[in-house]
Design a protein around this nucleic acid. Structure first.
Lengths: 191, 191
DNA sequence: TCATTGATACACCGATCTGTGTAATTAGTA
DNA sequence: TACTAATTACACAGATCGGTGTATCAATGA
């Protein structure tokens, strides 16, 4: 149990702990008392930094909206590498699915803001795929990007239930088949 | 708001209402008081039929473990028809993702029984795919069945967030591409 | 007619939830 | 030293949660 250093700014400490608990156990399953107790601060202090639990939940999800890797490796390698990274995530004990999908499934219609963040996250990844497919000169980069994103989401959902890391490999195999069918070649970056 | 007829057996009425509420709003978000009030019965009556909320939740999920359609249509048509049915589900206002994935995402480690039911559900659909792929004479029916199941789960997760029914079409396109690459032919049932 | 069964209303339990009010305490700084 | 700002402990509010106890009432069938 790695606790955030007491030296860090309070807001950051709260966010890190909220992330660990909300993601690991679920948003509704974790109360603000639990978050505060886990850091060793009073509930009052937590509420001095976030006006409500809803605000804390949104901040937790916003923190997970990180920019995607901007590598200079070949596009095909980057695309397939996504599934390898996914497989490595499956191997960690902390992995518990997609934080955004889980939040939407848990909160449903109750929070439009949560859903907007989830859409933003999903669309960012889809566009990341599409940018790489563009460089590969694929015929329908938009459609294929959606399909690749579908495979990622499917692998995550399937793993969440089955806990079988092979789901990442199955998704990668499917991605390779789709890419091959679309005419992706090995080193197509510049020609 | 269609309420189950008061003529139906009490247990069935409870289950139908629990299904509608648990699936529509989430398990943790709906209390037993709400379920009883929605039917117009006392909480006591509900507890006379189910010993606990956990038992009610399990019964709700078990009721969703229905056998998959056993059609005599061509295998390829049945497989692709799955994605058409999915697309039609997306069009309904009630659709809120996969009840089993949502339950696991919501309850997480807290209920092994829920996860077991979810695994059973997912595996049944995967085996249904595999049986059809067997009849198509596909080289690796097991692997392709997993990939098709991944596409279904991915489309559901993506739709849950984006609310875009086109996710079903994207999954169907990907499925067709995978099937074509695997050598599935139009009318391969008997030769 | 009488006994049984199931449903009813309703109060209640202890626990937990988000959120607030308040007064004391700490630490840094002018 | 004196002021300020953050954090503390702690009680409390009002709601909701899952679950129970109990006494009454209505329908059924022997």
């Amino acid at each position: 149990m790695k606790l955030p250093s007491a030296k860090l700014p309070m807001k950051q400490r709260i966010l890190e702990t909220a992330d660990r608990l909300f993601y690991g156990r679920g948003i509704r399953a974790v109360g603000v008392d639990t978050v505060a107790a886990e850091i060793g601060i009073s509930k009052r202090t937590l509420y001095n930094h976030f006006p409500s639990k809803d605000a804390l939940v949104l901040a937790y999800l916003e923190r997970r909206l990180q920019p995607l890797p901007d590598s200079d490796r070949p596009p095909l390698e980057q695309i397939l590498g996504t599934f390898d990274r996914l497989g490595r995530s499956f191997g960690t004990a902390e992995f518990r699915g997609c934080a955004f999908v889980n939040a939407v499934a848990e909160l449903g219609e109750e929070s439009a803001a949560v859903r907007d963040l989830a859409i933003e996250f999903k669309e960012a990844r889809r566009l990341w795929f599409r940018g790489l497919l563009d460089r590969l000169g694929i015929a329908d980069p938009d459609g294929l990007a959606t399909q690749l994103a579908l495979l990622v989401d499917g692998a995550i959902a399937a793993f969440l239930v089955r806990r079988d890391p092979a789901m990442a490999l199955a998704a990668k195999d499917a991605a390779m088949a789709l890419l091959a069918q679309a005419g992706a070649r090995q080193a197509p970056a510049d020609r």
